[in-house]
Structure formats: structure tokens, C-alpha cells
């Protein structure tokens, strides 16, 4: 698309939307948000970039192949689900480790498998949607 306004605007918009997608990813589980919505927003940011500068540029900006990203995401999500078996819980049970306390109210922050699962979902959604849209963009 040869519009200088769109190209110039896209640079700011892409960065903003992408950061917002990460915010949505980290906000998930306890509040509205999560990996799926974050992944959609992340994909939108790259699609805007691809519309402004061409999908070749967008692929370069992504650095890795979107299909590979989706498969790695699937692997991460799977691993996050299976890890609970090491702690003797049924599979896909969330594992929580609270730092500086022992529950949601008192702890400063937590290390948990739920976020890892969400990151996996994020990557699956991002990679899956981008591989489809890039393929469409390059075919036409």
C-alpha cells in the first residue's frame, strides 16, 4: 500500500499494539486478557505492518518463521500442562509458586505454569494467524 500517511502512522501503531498485546498476555488469568487475545492483538500489529511495508518486511521483523512459532507455542503449552504431573497433580492443573507470601493477597508476584501455558497459546495464535495472512498476501 503506497500511502505515506499510513506508512508513517503504522510505525507508531504497530509498536503500540504490540506492546498492548504483551500487556494483555501478562494481565490474563486473574483479569480479562490472556494468551488468545494477546496473540490476536500481536498478529494484528504484524498484519498492519505487512499492509504498510509488505509482508516481506513483516517477515523480516518477525525474524522467525510463523509456522515454527506456532509449533513452538504448541510445545510450550503442552509442556506447561504436563509439568503438573511432576508435582503429583492431575495434568493441566495450574502450578503456583508465590514469591513473598503464600497466597494471591499477600504475595508480591507468582511464578506459575498458567502464564507459561498462556505464552504458548499466544505464540500459537500469533504464528497461526500470521502464517495464513502472509501466505494470502504473497499469493495475490
Amino acid at each position: 500500500m503506497n500511502s505515506i500517511i499510513f506508512t508513517a502512522g503504522a510505525r507508531i501503531l504497530v509498536a503500540l499494539v504490540f506492546v498492548f498485546s504483551l500487556f494483555m498476555l501478562l494481565r490474563g488469568h486473574h483479569l480479562p486478557g490472556g494468551g488468545f487475545i494477546g496473540g490476536l492483538l500481536g498478529a494484528i500489529s504484524f498484519i498492519v505492518y505487512a499492509l504498510a511495508c509488505g509482508s516481506e518486511e513483516a517477515r523480516k521483523a518477525l525474524r522467525v518463521s510463523p509456522e515454527g512459532l506456532a509449533m513452538v507455542g504448541l510445545g510450550i503449552a503442552l509442556a506447561a500442562g504436563l509439568v503438573s504431573a511432576l508435582f503429583g497433580d492431575p495434568l493441566f492443573t495450574g502450578q503456583w509458586y508465590w514469591v513473598g507470601g503464600d497466597s494471591y493477597e499477600t504475595a508480591l508476584f507468582s511464578i506459575n505454569s498458567v502464564l507459561v501455558f498462556d505464552i504458548g497459546v499466544y505464540l500459537v495464535v500469533l504464528g497461526g494467524i500470521l502464517s495464513l495472512t502472509f501466505a494470502f498476501d504473497e499469493e495475490t
Binding site: E67, G68, M71, V72, L74, G75, L78
Partner: peptide, 10 residues
């Protein structure tokens, strides 16, 4: 099979 799919794809 899912894990195999991930590795086989990479």
C-alpha cells in the same frame, strides 16, 4: 503425538 509433531516440524 503432539510432542512428536512439534519436534518433527522443527
Amino acid at each position: 503425538p503432539f510432542a512428536t509433531a512439534v519436534v518433527a516440524f522443527l
